[in-house]
């Protein structure tokens, strides 16, 4: 497939797009603030000396609601897209998504245990209760991914196809256990579970944000270092080995990065589908399969798409809001189809 655009123009376009998305995400919401107030409040939050008369409300809305939400969207979108690239490279299959190694279903299982179990445990201490869901989802994702990886390894060799099948089997198993929890749940916990599965950036706060930011920066710095190895993997595992790459180690790192990144994203914002599967695809359609470009470009595109989707999610039904998982698919799927059909013509 020939690249449609040059990497440099793509980076410029994506950078502008992301800047626009950031601006919109800070400037738009159900509470309408004058653009000037938004800018002033944002500058004041950055510690710049700007006159702050009559800006209390703007500062509160920007500082406590929109800013954490924007950062959350940025991190979740970027890390999901990066993990998607890693998985599609590892499995050498454009249909691969981060869920394939079991991290999403594991996290969903962890969340279900926390939601239903937490409800039946009754009153947890206030210090723990808000983190229980996130911690449990994160742990669930890591545990199931580790299991999938173990099942796929034999004598120090990891078979990607065995891992794929193990991932499918464990996903089915996790689905069954989640189903059981759904059955045991009362109607209140059932609603919580359903909404969690649709994902949302709603209620973002700095305390829930920083673990994800750390993970995103880590994954975002680490994965591009493996871009050459991912390119070599495209030729096949033995070819990559002959080119001098430690294939087993690369595989291990890719799986670990994905588990960490997706686990943290899902723990912070619930299940947000589509980004991990389609954003890498989209970028590949535009610039071709070179991972040195694909990884950073996907991170930018994922973050921008998620932020745009979130702006729509909070505005379209205001003052109520739509789960973001619905919007990412509604925006992304038609655009993806358009690119596919255009590529064929």
């Amino acid at each position: 497939m020939n690249p449609v655009v040059l990497p440099r123009s793509l980076f410029i376009a994506l950078g502008l797009l992301l800047a626009l998305a950031l601006l919109l995400s800070l400037a738009l919401g159900p509470v309408s603030l004058p653009l000037l107030d938004t800018c002033k409040a944002a500058l004041r939050l950055l510690g710049l000396p700007v006159a702050g008369d009559g800006l209390e409300q703007a500062e509160l809305i920007i500082g406590q609601i929109r800013m954490p939400r924007t950062l959350l969207g940025l991190a979740v979108g970027a890390v999901l897209a990066l993990s998607g690239v890693a998985m599609q490279g590892l499995f050498r299959n454009p249909l691969a998504d981060p869920g394939l190694v079991g991290v999403s279903s594991g996290a969903a299982l962890g969340a279900a245990i926390a939601i239903v179990g937490g409800a039946s445990l009754g009153g947890l201490p206030d210090a723990i209760a808000p983190y229980l869901l996130s911690a449990s989802a994160f742990a669930g994702g890591l545990v199931v991914t580790a299991l999938v990886y173990r099942l796929g390894s034999r004598n120090g060799q990891t078979s990607v196809s065995t891992m794929l099948l193990a991932g499918i089997a464990l996903t089915a198993l996790a689905g069954a256990v989640i189903g059981l929890f759904t059955y045991l749940a009362d109607d209140a916990t059932l609603r919580t579970l359903t909404f969690w599965n649709l994902g949302s950036l709603n209620g973002a706060s700095y305390t829930r944000l920083w673990p994800l930011l750390v993970v995103t920066i880590g994954v975002g710095l680490w994965l591009p270092k493996r871009a050459k190895a991912l390119n070599a993997l495209l030729l096949g595992e033995s070819e990559a080995r002959h080119l001098g790459f430690d294939v087993e180690r690369v595989k291990r790192e890719l799986v670990f990065c994905t588990a960490l990144g997706v686990g943290a994203a899902v723990a912070a914002a619930g299940m947000i589908g589509f980004i991990g599967l389609v954003v890498p695809h989209l970028v590949r359609l535009l610039v071709g399969p070179d991972h040195r470009v694909l990884l950073p470009a996907s991170a930018l595109a994922g973050a921008a798409l998620l932020l745009f989707a979130d702006v729509v999610a909070r505005l379209v039904l205001a003052p109520a809001e739509l789960p973001i998982g619905i919007v990412t698919a509604l925006i992304g799927a038609p655009f993806f189809l358009y690119l596919l059909l255009r590529g064929r013509a």
Partner: peptide, 13 residues
């Protein structure tokens, strides 16, 4: 919206 999934900014608006 639904009472268990409220959005802060929507209410404040």
């Amino acid at each position: 919206g639904y009472q268990r999934q409220l959005a802060a900014e929507g209410i404040l608006s």
